[in-house]
């Protein structure tokens, strides 16, 4: 009986190990958000933003932000700026609007909404994301 149980536990552990090894993919801890090449700068003092990706990854579902991804693309998610490239700040899915639209998955939209619902998450331009050097 004990032998069977041990066998079962070890087999299960091996299976889990095998599955996780196959499905393993890297979740970056920090992501530096830079403008896509050739994209015109909107602002003279805002530097590329160091985004705490890992901090968000353990609190939210991946697809809350990676809104176009599916189960099939798991592990191969593309960064926001691969699609949100337009440098016109008024373009609906442009580079600026990707981070500054009214609701999730945009950074500012999600943060302002959560703040108004009682959250303590930062929203200040120069205190949350764009700290002056």
């Amino acid at each position: 009986m004990l032998r069977n149980m041990l066998l079962f536990v070890s087999l299960t552990a091996m299976l889990i190990f095998a599955v996780t090894t196959v499905l393993a993919y890297e979740v970056p801890d920090k992501v530096l958000i830079e403008r896509p090449k050739g994209n015109q700068k909107l602002n003279s003092w805002v530097a590329p933003v160091s985004f705490p990706h890992g901090f968000h990854a353990i609190r939210l579902a991946c697809r809350d932000c990676h809104h176009k991804e599916t189960d099939k693309t798991l592990g191969k998610y593309v960064p926001c700026r691969q699609c949100h490239t337009d440098d016109d700040p008024t373009a609906e899915s442009g580079f600026y609007r990707a981070w500054h639209s009214p609701g999730p998955p945009s950074c500012l939209g999600c943060h302002t909404q959560m703040r108004s619902e009682g959250g303590k998450n930062p929203v200040g331009c120069t205190t949350a994301c764009h700290k002056p050097k």
Binding site: P52, V123, G124
Partner: peptide, 11 residues
């Protein structure tokens, strides 16, 4: 608020 100070709320 306060109205005449920017938000001080770093991560």
């Amino acid at each position: 608020s306060p109205f005449f100070h920017p938000i001080e709320d770093g991560p």
